[in-house]
Every structure is written in structure tokens, then in C-alpha cells.
């Protein structure tokens, strides 16, 4: 069964939300729908499920790694070669707190940043389905459906206020 990928462009959130509801009715599951927008649109508005993200987990992982690295710097490296300095503990705890904090934060921030890259598959310069109008505030819904249902869905969406519904084609952004 061949599939078609269609892309419907809407002026506003409401018609887009309706369209998505309609699509659900027409048997297009959430897995086969994606929405592209120029501003972040809350999933509830469109009646979409909460999109999963690993970013927070990665942040946490980064924080732990950073903490461990801080531990290594402050409590490990002095043991690699011992240099005493006046009136200080060899591996002092209060200054260690600073090292631990900074390293934890640095690694957490780096991991978060990288998390965005990993989760969003950045950077990606491959041709992708996209319409430039999205950055003008339009909302694009693109979905996969069976080839034979494409026409029907197109008509339905047009009725719901889609500015255009057309087969999505991957192009160079």
C-alpha cells in the first residue's frame, strides 16, 4: 500500500486544530502527523499528544558528568602530583564546592545544548519537507496517509480552511 505525504498550510491555529481533529477522524494517527509552525504552539491547542524529549534527561546526565569531573579536578588531580601551598588543605572542600558547581553547570548546559542537537537531529542540511510561509506565521500540518485517501483528505482540509493542501516534497531548505 503506497503512502502519500501531504502538507496542509493554515492561516491560524483554530483551523489547524480542526484539521488535525478531522485527520484523526479520518484515521490518520498522531504518529503520522507533524505540525510545523513559526512560533511554538502548545500541543494541547492542536489536540496533539505531548511530544517526547530527551533534553531534560541529557541535562541531568551532563550535570552528573560535570559533577564527577569537578570531583576529579578538585579531589583527583592534586593526587597526581602533590604540590603543597601555604596554609591550605591538600584537597580543600570549600573551594572544591566552587569547582563542583561550575563544572556541574558547565556540563549540564553543554549537555542541554547538545541535547537539542541530538533530539532535533541538528544540524541537518538534507532536503526536507517544508514551506517557507511557516516563518510568516502560518501553520503547516503534514501527514502521511494511504495514497487512495489523499484526495479525500485534501478536500476535507480545504473545506476546513486550509490555504493549500499539496503533496509534500522534500526540498533544500
Amino acid at each position: 500500500m503506497s503512502e502519500a505525504t501531504l502538507l496542509a498550510v493554515f492561516e491560524d491555529i483554530d483551523p489547524a486544530a480542526n484539521a488535525i481533529e478531522k485527520l484523526h477522524e479520518l484515521g490518520v494517527t498522531d504518529e503520522n502527523i507533524n505540525v510545523i509552525s513559526g512560533v511554538p504552539v502548545a500541543h494541547k491547542m492542536l489536540g496533539r499528544p505531548h511530544p517526547p524529549t530527551n533534553v531534560s534527561r541529557l541535562s541531568m546526565g551532563g550535570a552528573i558528568a560535570g559533577f564527577l569531573f569537578g570531583l576529579f579536578l578538585n579531589f583527583g588531580t592534586p593526587h597526581l602530583y602533590n604540590v603543597p601551598v601555604g596554609g591550605q588543605f591538600f584537597t580543600p572542600i570549600p573551594p572544591g564546592m566552587i569547582i563542583l558547581f561550575e563544572m556541574t553547570m558547565l556540563f549540564a548546559l553543554l549537555a542541554t545544548f547538545l541535547g537539542v542537537f541530538l533530539d532535533s537531529d541538528f544540524p541537518n542540511y538534507q532536503p526536507m519537507e517544508y514551506v517557507a510561509e511557516v516563518s510568516d506565521g502560518k501553520i503547516a500540518v503534514f501527514f502521511r496517509c494511504a495514497q487512495q485517501e489523499a484526495l479525500k483528505i485534501t478536500e476535507t482540509l480545504n473545506k476546513l480552511g486550509a490555504e493549500s493542501v499539496r503533496p509534500a516534497e522534500a526540498r533544500q531548505l
Binding site: N34, H43, P51, V116, Y125
Partner: peptide, 11 residues
């Protein structure tokens, strides 16, 4: 390669 998909915005 940012497009503005739900996932991208979410991340």
C-alpha cells in the same frame, strides 16, 4: 535545518 516541527520546538 530548523523547520519548526513540534519536536524541534519542544526540545
Amino acid at each position: 535545518g530548523f523547520r519548526g516541527t513540534e519536536g524541534e520546538w519542544r526540545h
